[in-house]
Design a protein around this nucleic acid. Structure first.
Length: 471
RNA sequence: GCUCCCUUCGUCUAGUGGUUAGGACGCUGGCCUCUCACGCCGGUAACAGGGGUUCGAAUCCCCUAGGGAGCGCCA
């Protein structure tokens, strides 16, 4: 039997990080078993489903490079099929029309809660023979009254739930439209899904679905309920933990392979290994090895992995990503050094693409002000003569390359009997506005001759002004 | 309230009756060094609590506590 997994999000919001991990697990397991991964959009809730959400899901999946072998399928395209199954269920007396009003049901629920009971439909209409005038009935599934439902969950282990915990759930609304718990079962059956991998918020739905499945004569798939991902404080993931939507991580400058690696290690591991290539993940991942406990999302670790992958990233791709980022920051990447050189200088110094772009701004545009502390510490009168000297030497330099620049800076420092740092730091601040840049020779090479000389002049002027103000 | 699920360093985790409880992120001391970063070496820190079972429990059982999920004409 070949494995078939599915990812079945509902398009009622963005694609969040927990959903993406579920999708990753589905995808990995299908790849690993040489099975099929299908994408299905559960859009039976017409009130809340939006085209924007569908768009966000598709974009998120594409960014994560989790390509479906089949689909996307849309439940709204399958309404006739659901109708057909519902009619069949009614015909076979496995489902029935319920004429209870919302008010009646709500009142009953209140009463049950007041009595400390679990609110459940009281099956008043289960054996009704007549209809009620003026009420469009809903359709309810006749859940078994006796016995219990048992399944061996691939991550949770054996779960047993007694049928008397379950009531006769609505499978079609009064307008005739089918509901979620029913549609999933029909879909998974029709699509021959062998492994249902989903969030563990569905555990409680599973026994109902199994009962419907049996009524339909289907075989149980393997269920794997993966625990939730919580925020860094152990609470449900929400806006205040930062980004929730996967697309926000793309915008943040996270690499998809870093996200995949981070997410696969949340709830799953292979000994002490932290770094997994796609090939390794596919070869090693097994849904049966996933942890039962929920885990907390830790941005710091994601960032660490991202930096790792930035260091490994192929130059041309990094250049492309950096350029996109610069463009989005309204910077013309043609006004500065080659992106290839920038990327090499910064790939060990940036945890995200956005950070890389921010650290390369002064290669392209002049900065407004010096970093206050940096200027205070390094742009001082003692450095003035050395700066003036190095400015003139550099102006005369024919070969504006790191090697020659390095030699010139070193020679200047020696002439002034200063350690290299005493000169390098003032230059660094002069040229970048900050006290932290790549090595001074590389920095000067990247900033370029014209900007370097102009900025050294500016720094010298700044020192003079400072002296004038505080004689 | 009821049902189900979960519980090893701050975080992600290894561990399946005998380990100095290991690794990673973070934090931190040092080395390297023109700054930052990278890299390297070292440190910090955990079995939720209580009962059993056993010669011996992080590992097995029970209870308690804490956390989560569900109880919709949402998915």
């Amino acid at each position: 039997m070949t494995v078939r997994t599915r990812f079945a999000p509902s398009p009622t919001g963005y694609l969040h990080i927990g959903g993406v991990r579920t999708a990753l697990f589905c995808w990995l397991y299908a790849r690993r078993t040489q099975g099929t991964f299908v994408l299905r959009i559960e859009d039976t809730d017409r009130e809340r489903s939006t085209p924007e959400s569908i768009e966000a899901i598709l974009k998120g999946m594409a960014w994560m490079e989790l390509t479906a072998d089949e689909g996307p399928f849309y439940q709204t395209d399958r309404m006739n099929r659901y109708r057909e199954v519902i009619d069949d269920l009614i015909e076979r007396n496995l489902a029935y029309r319920c004429y209870c009003t919302r008010e009646e049901i709500e009142a009953e629920r209140e009463a049950q809660r007041a009595r400390g009971e679990k609110p459940r439909y009281n099956r008043r209409c289960r054996n009704l023979t007549s209809s009620r005038e003026g009420i469009e009935p809903v359709i309810r599934f006749k859940n078994p009254i006796e016995g219990s439902v048992v399944w061996d969950d691939a991550v949770k282990g054996r779960i047993v739930i007694s049928n008397d915990e379950l009531d006769d759930l609505i499978i079609a609304r009064s307008d005739g439209s089918p509901t979620y718990n029913f549609c999933v079962v029909v879909d998974d059956l029709d699509m021959e899904i062998t492994h249902v991998i989903r969030g563990d918020d569905h555990v409680n739905n599973t026994p109902r679905q199994i009962n419907i499945l049996r009524a339909l004569g289907g075989e149980s798939p393997v269920y794997a309920h993966v625990p939730m991902i919580l925020g860094s404080d152990g609470q449900r993931l929400s806006k205040r933990h930062g980004a929730v939507s996967v697309l926000e991580y793309e915008a943040m400058g996270i690499l998809p392979e870093a996200m995949r690696n981070y997410l696969v290690r949340l709830g799953w591991s292979h000994g002490d290994q932290e770094i997994f290539s796609d090939e390794e993940m596919i070869a090693l991942f097994d849904i049966f090895d996933v942890n039962r406990a929920p885990s907390n999302f830790d941005l710091e670790k994601l960032l660490w992995l991202n930096q790792h992958y930035i260091k490994e990233c192929e130059s041309s791709r990094l250049q492309r990503l950096l350029e996109q980022q610069l463009v989005s920051m309204n910077i013309d990447a043609n006004t500065g050094p080659s992106l290839q050189d920038v990327v090499e200088a910064l790939r060990e110094r940036a945890r995200t693409i956005v950070e890389m772009a921010e650290k390369s701004l002064y290669f392209f545009n002049d900065f407004d002000d010096y970093d206050e502390n940096a200027a205070k510490k390094h742009l001082r009168p003692v450095a003035r003569e050395m700066l003036a000297d190095v400015r003139n030497r550099l102006a005369a330099l024919g070969d504006w390359q790191p090697e020659a620049l390095h030699a010139e800076v070193v020679a200047t420092a020696e002439d002034h009997e200063a350690k290299l740092g005493k000169l390098a730091q003032p230059i660094r601040v002069a040229v970048s506005g900050t006290a932290a840049t790549p090595s001074i020779d590389v920095t000067l090479a990247l900033v370029g001759r014209d900007k370097t000389l102009a900025r050294l002049d500016r720094a010298i002027g700044y020192i003079d002004e400072r002296v004038a103000q505080n004689p």
